[in-house]
Design a protein around this nucleic acid. Structure first.
Lengths: 140, 140
DNA sequence: CCATTTTCCTACATAACCACTAGGAAATAT
DNA sequence: ATATTTCCTAGTGGTTATGTAGGAAAATGG
């Protein structure tokens, strides 16, 4: 299950990608996407820290996408906010970690299955960009 | 991410499905699958309550699969223990619920994407049975 | 009937996480 | 200088995760 945080992050990016100027203030995004203001602030800061957004402060400041919307994938955002896509760490590409109690990964029944799941999820989420999401007639 | 509970449930079922007798006691399963005993007890009880296992108590009691291992799908178990596969309730088949704040599902950018994800996950998890998992040379 | 075994049930513990909120410091534009 | 806006540190109240402890109820073997 996606956390609200992740859902808000995606919505915020879609709103931002669909904006005229390309730059929007936290307040405006919060209003447009119907997200609690202070909470969104924290989310945007995190996205900036992780290189997804750029920001400028002070009057007439705001946030911009750090790269083209077509290069920001839904999968990237979910990984940043919620962690790896894979249902289990030993099946993750981006955050692999061996299970403490697993004697032999190659013969673990779950490992193989969960890799398939990860692959399936990645196949959808890493092929869908914020640009793809923003071009539809989106309502929040 | 799968919870330990779900991981344990799957492991327990695989062990049980792979056993000679078809009936095993909680203690024995815990040992074979390397799961904390008392915790497993609770898990097995839940699986029984949800119709996946049958049980008999008293001396020489234990747990058996309530139906053929080939008819118990990994997806079923995950849904029972962790909830819906879909990343968001409005994209779930088995636990659909409209988002409170969503004015029009058909035009929600996330809805469509998350349905694709659910479909992809279901495609793997609802086609893989405990039987499939147990037939491999599994080690825990 | 009795003792033993095993499931079943209730309760608790503790740590982490989720979804936010408050208040102010630092930077920027006019 | 002032107003605006992001950035930073804290804290809060509720829920979930991952178990443990202790004993009641049921079944079996003798």
């Amino acid at each position: 299950m996606l956390s609200m945080k992740t859902k808000y992050a995606l919505k915020a990016l879609i709103v931002l990608a669909g904006s005229e100027e390309g730059r929007m203030q936290a307040r405006a995004i919060a209003k447009a996407a119907n997200i609690p203001g202070k909470f969104l602030e924290a989310i945007l800061t995190e996205l900036k820290m992780r290189g997804v957004l750029d920001s400028r402060r002070g009057a007439d400041g705001g946030f911009t996408l750090a790269r083209d919307a077509s290069k920001i994938m839904a999968g990237d955002i979910i990984r940043i906010m919620d962690g790896p896509l894979a249902p289990i760490r030993c099946a993750s590409m981006t955050a692999y970690k061996r299970c403490d109690d697993c004697p032999d990964e190659a013969r673990c029944a779950l490992h193989g299955l969960m890799r398939e799941v990860r692959e399936a999820m990645s196949g959808v989420l890493d092929k869908c960009s914020i640009h793809d999401l923003a071009r539809e007639e989106t309502v929040f």
